[in-house]
């Protein structure tokens, strides 16, 4: 059938950045659209059981995307993403933050700088997202958002998650 999907989640050893990489068996155009057009983004951006509701999306350099993710209990997590650099169908960067419904950033919550790269070949598209956190504490606060609870892992798995510096 189709090729095995690639999924990488690499925590850099300074713990302040994460690379998430995934391949999709789809050409570049629909994948790029899925990341940059509101009507498509809202269909998938929130991981289940959350739903994403987009208030506004201005996809251009200096533009802002404002949305919230709603949990099954009706809890809403407002976020924005400010676009910095856009290279159509190849790359975009910016920073996101948790905020209130007016887009006022919540300073207690982490701000993450992003770079998303899109590479297509043979009808397959690889998306690589580099997430950079201001500090490891910011990463901890991501957990405080409480998406999922509890998980114990052996040292072997931990080893796989961490990049080793030999």
């Amino acid at each position: 059938m189709t090729q095995q999907a690639l999924f990488n989640f690499i925590v850099e050893k300074d713990a302040n950045s994460i690379t998430v990489e995934r391949s999709f068996n789809a050409p570049l155009d629909p994948v790029w659209a899925a990341w940059t057009e509101a009507e498509v983004l809202c269909k998938w951006w929130a991981p289940r059981p959350y739903e994403c509701v987009i208030k506004s999306l201005d996809f251009r350099e200096g533009g802002r995307w404002l949305y919230y993710m709603q949990g099954p209990q009706g809890d809403r997590h407002w976020c924005y993403f400010d676009y910095a650099t856009i290279r159509p169908k190849s790359y975009f960067s910016g920073s996101d933050a948790f905020c209130d419904e007016h887009g006022v950033a919540n300073t207690i919550k982490p701000k993450v700088t992003w770079e998303a790269h899109f590479n297509a070949s043979d009808g397959r598209t690889v998306v690589r997202v580099l997430l950079h956190f201001a500090s490891a504490q910011d990463l901890e606060q991501i957990v405080a958002m409480g998406f999922k609870e509890g998980f114990t892992m052996g040292l072997d798995q931990l080893d796989e998650l961490l990049t080793t510096s030999k």
Binding site: F7, F9, V11, F24, W44, A46, I142, M153, Q157
Partner: peptide, 28 residues
Amino acid sequence: EATDWMEQYRQFWEERFDRLEEYLKELQ
């Protein structure tokens, strides 16, 4: 503590991407 946040964040992204994949499949 360390593994917990990593795993949760990893899952968060994996689930998000799974959803995108579903959408792309539907589209195709």
